[in-house]
Design a protein around this nucleic acid. Structure first.
Lengths: 225, 225
DNA sequence: TTTTAACCTGACCAAACGGTCAAGATAAAT
DNA sequence: ATTTATCTTGACCGTTTGGTCAGGTTAAAA
């Protein structure tokens, strides 16, 4: 699991650990934690770390505010937990950038995976956007190590393709940024797209078409089709 | 000027209007307002509307907090003023999408103008990102009228190019979203790009190269080169 | 059945928040 | 020189904030 820990405090205050307390209690804990995390993901996505309030998280999770603090000591702990989870999912999507010989297949797979993630988990993407816009205060370590390492290794792969004459001589970072930007735009700016689409969320068909268009433009744009 | 007014209250509380009071007083007012607006643009860009505090704006503008409220009645008034200004600049960039016969020239000009705006005024772009992520509460009217009209008319232009066989049959909205996303990414996710770039802001040369790469990929991607 | 450990929550607190105000300082108009 | 209008700001206010806590409830262990 990704590490966003400060090295400082941990949670689960009672006793020492939740132990293997009876199935029922464990289920209660799990359900409440999930409910709070899901609510917090939405609230943080809407307002950012500073703008989000624990009261709103509690309200959306349908638990008293004090209960939120029973499960998670501080707002920051909740925030980090969600960030970790979002990053884990993205890293999973990043795996689609491996194996396979054909650059076009690899790039298509990665773009489609990121588009699907924007569709399936828009709140996570928006939360990330807030975090970066604010200056990546909580995550700069993670970005400069884990993410940077992954990105740099993909850049090497792309440079390999260029050297082999498989695609145009495009600066790989520019290409990757374009993929990041475009795929995440469908989550982060979803509201704007919705307004342009006569105030209707993109239908499954529209989204599928958008996805295909993104793939087509980028693949052709770098000489891969 | 773009209208983000609620129709309600106005500013400049003293008397009725600032009048043409002597050059010095007028200069003081202008300088203070500018200083506050510039500071507020940064603070709003970092924290969003809810997360931004008037105290921080005052501190950054180097005026006492009470003075902020002397020039601008509420936080919301400041926010709307800045949004107006940002939109006016974007609309200006949008003008580059007019005239000229060659689609490639038009698209290149627009992409370059938007890239330059991201570089010159990153805070405005980030402020816009916050506003949309949060659900466009203050600006949905503006987007669904002014911006949508502009966008729809450009879509018609692009469809014309496609009908004339000048470019590939790409769904125009997908293309425009890609341009929005990619160009604004260089402002909104500037911190992330900086981290990937060994914690150095993109140099002028690097940015120029990025701009050229964006233009190349998109133009070729839609069959315009 | 009793004990214990975990769960629950209304009431509370200090700090931070957006915004107000009265009283003084400054510069323009008379 | 005096009046007037604007600029300036420390002190203040009601509200909201993240977080605490005492005392209660529930379920598992003894």
């Amino acid at each position: 699991m990704t590490s966003f820990k400060t090295g400082a405090k941990q949670d689960h205050q009672p006793g020492v650990k939740p132990a293997v307390n009876g199935a029922h209690k464990a289920a209660i804990r799990q359900e409440n934690e999930e409910q709070i995390l899901a609510a917090a993901e939405q609230v943080f996505a809407d307002y950012g770390f500073k703008g989000a309030t624990t009261a709103r998280i509690a309200e959306m999770a349908k638990v008293p505010k004090a209960n939120v603090h029973y499960y998670f000591s501080t707002k920051e702990v909740i925030y980090r937990r969600i960030m970790e989870d979002v990053c884990d999912h993205w890293l999973q999507a990043a795996m689609t950038f491996d194996n396979s010989a054909d650059p076009a297949v690899i790039l298509r797979g990665y773009i489609e995976a990121k588009m699907d993630l924007s569709r399936a988990r828009p709140y996570g993407s928006r939360l990330w956007a807030h975090e970066i816009i604010r200056g990546a205060k909580f995550s700069s370590d993670y970005i400069s190590t884990t993410v940077k390492n992954w990105l740099d290794s993909r850049v090497v792969v792309i440079k390999g393709w260029i050297a082999e004459g498989k695609m145009d001589d495009i600066e790989p970072y520019s290409l990757m940024y374009m993929i990041f930007a475009t795929t995440q735009h469908y989550a982060d700016f979803g509201r704007q797209i919705e307004i342009f689409n006569d105030d209707q969320p993109l239908s499954e068909e529209q989204f599928a078409e958008a996805k295909e268009n993104v793939v087509r433009i980028i693949l052709k744009g770098v000489g891969l089709s």
